[in-house]
Amino acid sequence: MSERLLPESFQDLDPFATAWSLATERERNRQRLSSTMEEIQAFYNALLPRMEAVVAYLNQFPLDSMPADAQQLLYLTLSLAEVAPAVELFKQPSVADGYDAARFVPAHE
């Protein structure tokens, strides 16, 4: 069995951690753009109802010195922010009629 990535109380989200617990905006954006809507929707559906508990849990740690598993959980929430427009606004992974994301390069992430 693979090692758990997320804190114990959020084991239900662990199956999503490998794909979506990503440290940088560029990685999270690439993951969004290379996923199907079904994959994005499954991740969104799993995390959104848990957000209140997740944020309450994460807020007990100082942002700059989180335990490793909490840090992974924080990255997972940042991916929810990343996919939100795909699910809620565009109904597709990329920005509809949008610019090539690979050309819009993060300098400070």
């Binding site: 994460l58 807020n59 740690f61 942002l63 924080l74 929430t77 929810l80 922010a81 939100a84 427009p85």
Partner: peptide, 19 residues
Amino acid sequence: AGQRFSQEYSKVIFRDVIM
């Protein structure tokens, strides 16, 4: 973490609008 999440959401929307 809540504020960090909020900033990320705000910036992602901003970026996508700009796209």
